[in-house]
């Protein structure tokens, strides 16, 4: 089976522990992080992770858990299959 990759993006106000909390969820769900990248512009935190979801059947439950964390932290967390970014930004 081909590798299935997804992008986790986090946008919001910077605070302690964002990456820790997100990666904890991912490790609990047995999701491997392939790449991680973050930047802070004027207190605005942007992070993206490329994760391997080849073995993950139930993406929706991962998404829901991430959404809950996002709500608690007051940031917006999205989980989207990587193809949508490839389609939009690469020919």
């Amino acid at each position: 089976m081909e590798n299935r990759r997804a992008v986790v993006s986090v946008l919001g106000k910077d605070q302690v522990g964002i990456i820790a909390k997100v990666t904890t969820v991912l490790s609990e769900k047995q999701i491997n992080v392939l790449d991680i990248n973050q930047t802070i512009v004027e207190d605005f935190f942007t992070m993206m992770m490329i994760v391997d979801v080849t073995q993950i059947e139930d993406l929706d439950s991962v998404r829901q858990t991430l959404n809950e964390i996002g709500e608690n932290l007051g940031v917006k967390i999205n989980l989207q299959l990587e193809e949508v970014f490839q389609a939009m930004h690469r020919i």
């Binding site: 993006s9 970014f85 930004h89």
Partner: peptide, 17 residues
């Protein structure tokens, strides 16, 4: 090919805002 942070934020912004 890797996707840049700015490209990801552009897509997310297009959808959400």
């Amino acid at each position: 090919m890797n996707i840049g942070l700015d490209e990801i934020t552009e897509t997310v912004r297009m959808v959400q805002m």
